[in-house]
């Protein structure tokens, strides 16, 4: 019999669909639990605060790596956040709905799809070579700004658009100018959303590797300035896994990464929920 009755088909399909959900969650649990179980035993305060020896042994901890990562992300945010917010304000509040605005939006969309390694090539050609920043934290940070720009702009724009129209109308009715309305009413109200966008970008910055692999140089030494080379946590996992036998250290570093991402994700979800609950509740 080739014809399956609709009822049987329904049962088979249901099984497949539930299995799809289960497999997805299962894979996630498998990776996260595997890395945490094998990585956490080698994690210690010592590991976090000892400098790596560098070279092929892979001995030591990750103190300088953490410092490089913090420098990198700090520098990135100082440039990224103002630019992202500015562009989002324009798109959400000022942009007329014409063709050129469409082109700007399309640019953001396309930029979001460009692979990390292409940004790396670009960063290498512009920041490392043409501007003579060499392989450095600064070159890496500027490249990261380019990668994260679409995420920052889109998420911030959503947050600004989430502010109820009544806020703007109220301010304008009181005689405020457009800029006063935006700077004193809309932006403060959208602030939790902007913070969410920023933390989201921090999460992505921590995970980026390919573009930094070709712009940061990968030195494991303590960075003395923004023009020093450096290694992020992600790069450290890569170097340890590919060039040393210190797989336990790589695993411990990977566990640190996963823990950071879990914290970042939980925090952004919580913040976003609170933000939208408040905006929704006030209309």
């Amino acid at each position: 019999m080739r014809n399956i009755s609709p009822k049987t088909a329904q049962k088979i399909a249901m099984a497949g669909i539930w299995a799809g959900g289960a497999v997805t969650v299962g894979i996630l649990l498998l990776i996260v639990i595997y890395v945490l179980l094998r990585g956490i035993p080698s994690l210690s305060i010592d590991f976090l605060f000892t400098a790596p020896k560098g070279g092929l042994s892979g001995d030591g901890g990750i103190s300088t790596i953490i410092v490089s990562t913090v420098y990198l992300i700090g520098t990135t945010l100082i440039i990224l956040v103002p630019v992202g917010i500015g562009a989002a304000i324009y798109l959400a509040e000022y942009a007329p709905s014409n063709k050129f605005t469409g082109v700007i939006r399309y640019g953001v969309e396309v930029l979001a799809g460009v692979p990390s390694i292409i940004f790396g090539l670009f960063g290498f050609a512009l920041f490392v070579t043409a501007l003579h920043f060499k392989f450095s934290i600064l070159s890496g940070a500027l490249t990261l700004v380019c990668i994260l720009l679409p995420t920052m702009i889109r998420t911030t724009e959503e947050a600004i658009k989430g502010v109820p129209q009544a806020y703007r109308e109220g301010a304008l009715a009181l005689g405020a100018t457009r800029w006063q309305t935006i700077s004193r009413v809309v932006i403060p109200a959208a602030m939790p959303g902007v913070i969410t966008a920023t933390i989201l970008c921090i999460g992505r910055a921590i995970g980026e590797t390919a573009c930094l692999y070709v712009t940061m140089g990968g030195s494991a030494a303590m960075p003395s300035s923004l023009l020093s080379g450096g290694r992020t946590l992600s790069l450290q996992v890569f170097y340890l896994a590919m060039e040393t036998r210190a797989l336990d250290k790589a695993m411990a570093t990977a566990a640190v990464l996963i823990l950071i991402i879990i914290i970042v994700n939980t925090f952004t979800t919580w913040l976003a929920h609170r933000f939208y609950a408040r905006m929704g509740g006030n209309v």
């Binding site: 997805t24 990776i31 595997y34 590797t209 996992v237 996963i258």
Partner: peptide, 22 residues
């Protein structure tokens, strides 16, 4: 499930690569 998928999107690619390697 939704936060799980978010986490799956957030895990750095080197962690996937490293897990794949071992």
């Amino acid at each position: 499930v939704r936060p799980a998928i978010q986490l799956l999107a957030g895990i750095p690619s080197v962690v996937y690569g490293f897990w794949g390697l071992i």
